[in-house]
């Protein structure tokens, strides 16, 4: 067994003990005629970091977007199977999509702040959900920015345009914005791929802090990142889950040869 990458020194506590929060059961997703997710079954533990890895186009983002039903916005998608969060099927008619998305926050690959002030960016979500009181909004903005490790850098110019921040700061602002609506789950789709190494490191540290309070699912192309920050790693290939295991275990001794080929850089 030869693995060409350094092993994580501090892969966090095993996810074994954690309770399953998201259950994905025989999920099939089609974009028109294209079968993008094939019979995906997967359990995602609560208050832990789950990493999705796999070559480009294998369906990682598609599965991530199924978890907060952002796929509903793409015309022609069809979904079969079941995704349950805390026991509730999120595709059942009783589920209100807006409430679901409030509970399942998302951070995108490219930082996408609104062309508004830093304050208004973070307050956007709470305002959507009816919070009007200035003092309450102030509290939320402060606590969210603190949780996203951005408060110290921006606390003196909250009225400044969010577009004046650096890329890494913008991405942390987007995380703060997602946290401001008090989600339980945070989805991150290659959230650091547009950032420099130092900003990436900051966000990885942030993820480590956040996992005590949130269930985090992240897509990454960076094997080291998956090894460093996640508890569970899921390897995808052509719309299928090839292997899902404890991160340490998956990187130390993958049970599937395709996983091994991928993580040792032989394809993908």
């Amino acid at each position: 067994m030869s693995i060409s990458m350094p092993m994580p020194a501090s892969a966090a506590t095993p996810a074994r003990t954690a309770r399953t929060l998201i259950e994905i059961d025989r999920l099939n997703l089609y974009y028109g005629d294209f079968h993008a997710l094939k019979n995906v079954s997967l359990d995602i533990p609560e208050r832990a970091v789950t990493a999705f890895i796999g070559p480009s186009g294998c369906g990682k983002s598609t599965l991530l977007r199924s978890l907060n039903r952002m796929n509903d916005l793409i015309p022609g998608t069809r979904i079969e199977g079941r995704i349950a969060i805390a026991g509730t099927d999120i595709y059942s008619p009783e589920v209100d999509v807006e409430t679901l998305r409030k509970k399942v926050g998302m951070v995108f690959q490219q930082p996408n702040p609104f062309p508004k002030s830093i304050y208004d960016n973070v307050a956007y979500g709470p305002r959507l959900h009816g919070i009007r009181k200035k003092s309450r909004l102030d509290e939320i903005v402060e606590s969210s920015l603190k949780a996203a490790a951005l408060w110290d850098e921006v606390k003196d110019h909250l009225k400044r345009s969010a577009l004046s921040l650096s890329g890494g700061q913008q991405q942390r602002l987007c995380i703060a914005r997602a946290l401001a609506v008090e989600p339980d789950i945070l989805l991150m789709d290659e959230a650091t791929s547009a950032l420099d190494p130092i900003s990436t490191l900051k966000i990885e540290e942030l993820v480590q802090q956040l996992k005590d309070r949130y269930t985090i699912v992240m897509v990454t192309h960076n094997m080291h990142q998956a090894a460093r920050v996640s508890n569970q790693t899921v390897f995808f290939l052509n719309g299928e889950v090839v292997e899902s295991a404890d991160t340490e275990q998956l990187f130390a001794g993958p049970s599937d040869s395709r996983t091994e080929d991928y993580i040792s850089g032989r394809f993908g």
Partner: peptide, 20 residues
């Protein structure tokens, strides 16, 4: 991406159109 940001925070369509 700006619409996505709004929808992902739980905005409905009119909220997204009018605010984002």
């Amino acid at each position: 991406s700006r619409r996505d940001a709004s929808y992902a925070l739980g905005a409905n369509r009119w909220q997204t159109v009018s605010r984002a």
